[in-house]
Design a protein around this nucleic acid. Structure first.
Length: 257
DNA sequence: CGGATTTGACCTCA
DNA sequence: TGAGGTCAAATCCG
């Protein structure tokens, strides 16, 4: 185990410890007295998992870079053999013209990059069996953020997706609210059609409403075992924490049963 | 009904 | 002129 993996392991172990504490509190608390403590613990869990993921992602990127560097002819941002680099062809834009791009390959088309994207186009690419999807930062208008990305399936079996990023995000404040990777069992059916969206504290729209709806469902009585399968972290903590916990499939009530 | 996605048309460049 | 990139109206969805 290298030092990166050891760090990730330490973070995960710490996260598990926090999750256990949280579970104990939930086991023995019926009132809202410890809601702040629950929230803090849930945040600790979230941070531990986020840190561990970051470490693992960084490690993976480092390995990717090394493998890419091992074949200098493969340093262009587009995979199709014999084709010009993406930033050299097609319509010229300030972004595409710049050398400010990088590429990631992942078996998951919705690879977590910490940002919120909006799809603005999809194109069948010649000499490729698969369509390419075009995304802009969701805060393009709000924050004049020029970051873009292109996602294209480059290999069918095993499925492999190439994501090419252009430009820099000028909407950094939103990064903190995007968290976990979404895994899909059938990426092909949903290629480019999902948004990974978590709540924003200033937002007055969709998910806050969703959260309110959840809160409306909370009653004073204790949860019964019958409700275990209905348990939702969003009933217990702020939405960004709740989503992260949901993503990790942490359900204390199922654990009890 | 508002916001996100889809998709055909259009723009630009090689 | 063909191909990639973008726009925007139509459509979908919660």
């Amino acid at each position: 185990m290298n030092s990166f993996q050891q760090k990730a392991m330490e973070k995960l172990l710490h996260g598990r410890g926090c999750a256990n504490q949280l579970k104990l509190i939930m086991d023995h608390t019926e009132s809202d007295d410890s809601s702040m403590e629950r929230e803090d613990l849930a945040k600790s869990v979230l941070h531990c998992f986020s840190d561990a993921l970051s470490i693992l992602i960084d490690t993976n990127e480092h390995q990717d870079d090394q493998s890419n560097n091992s074949s200098p002819q493969d340093s262009s941002p587009v995979l199709e053999s014999g084709r010009k680099p993406l930033h050299k062809r097609g319509r010229k834009t300030s972004i595409a013209e710049s050398s400010d791009y990088h590429r990631r390959e992942s078996p998951n088309p919705f690879y977590h990059d910490g940002f919120l994207w909006r799809k603005y186009g999809q194109k069948q690419i010649k000499e490729s069996d698969h369509q390419r999807s075009y995304y802009k930062c969701a805060y393009t208008k709000d924050h004049n953020c020029e970051a873009k990305k292109q996602v294209q399936k480059i290999q069918h079996n095993p499925p492999l997706y190439s994501t090419t990023y252009f430009g820099h995000h000028t909407c950094q404040l939103h990064q903190a609210y995007a968290t976990c990777p979404i895994d899909t069992s059938d990426p092909e059916d949903h290629e480019g059609s999902h948004m990974i969206r978590f709540d924003h504290p200033n937002s007055t729209t969709t998910l806050r409403n969703h959260q309110n709806q959840n809160q409306n469902h909370i009653t004073d009585e204790c949860m019964t075992a019958q409700k275990a399968e209905d348990w939702s972290p969003s009933q217990w903590m702020s939405s960004e924490v709740a989503h992260a916990v949901e993503a990790f499939e942490f359900n204390p009530f199922l654990d009890i049963l």
